[in-house]
């Protein structure tokens, strides 16, 4: 009886899976498809600006590689920051380090404001591993739940060779085209 129920669950889960598509976590492929710009870039500076009721920290970054879109530099906004005399705090908003290099999955909305996908999800650090290989890294997103088919899934930390990430992103974009 018990086993029957357990074996029956995957089918039941698939049965309720369709409506979950918009709520799935952002995988690399998701971000590749939904981003408007994907770049490897080094943060060159930041400033703050107000958009309506919100203060945003804008980061400027010099692009070394553009995987989606084309730009020599990008200017993107992260919610929160200090714009004298006000300070706005937004839980979960990433802070990027001037001089550090990242792979950035960016999204420009209809208003023209460019933001990072999923707050910190679209920010991968570019670091050199002990073998000297360039790696793009990000710890597991905390939003592991159920995937688009209704199955429980675990997010995995991202630690991928930069070259492999580049290949994966381009592969996703080619399929999307």
């Amino acid at each position: 009886m018990r086993r029957c129920l357990l074996f029956g669950l995957p089918a039941l889960l698939i049965g309720v899976a369709l409506q979950s598509a918009t709520l799935q976590r952002l995988s690399i492929s998701d971000m590749a498809r939904k981003s408007t710009t994907i770049v490897r870039a080094r943060i060159s500076g930041s400033y703050t600006a107000q958009h309506g009721s919100l203060i945003y920290t804008h980061y400027k970054a010099a692009v070394s590689e553009a995987w989606k879109g084309s730009a020599a530099a990008v200017d993107f906004a992260v919610p929160g920051g200090v714009l004298a005399p006000y300070r706005q705090t937004v839980s979960g908003a990433p802070r990027l380090t001037t001089g550090a290099e990242y792979v950035l999955f960016l999204w420009t909305g209809p208003s023209g404001l460019t933001q990072v996908m999923g707050l910190s999800q679209g920010v991968l650090n570019v670091v050199q591993d002990k073998n000297g290989d360039l790696m793009a890294t990000r710890a597991a997103a905390t939003e592991l739940m159920l995937d688009s088919r209704g199955q429980p899934v675990n997010d995995q930390p991202i630690s991928i060779r930069l070259s492999d990430l580049r290949t994966q992103v381009r592969g996703t974009l080619e399929v999307a085209q």
């Binding site: 709520l23 996908m117 707050l119 999800q121 939003e143």
Partner: peptide, 8 residues
Amino acid sequence: ALAGLTAS
């Protein structure tokens, strides 16, 4: 999941 709702 509300992926990235409070992404961190």
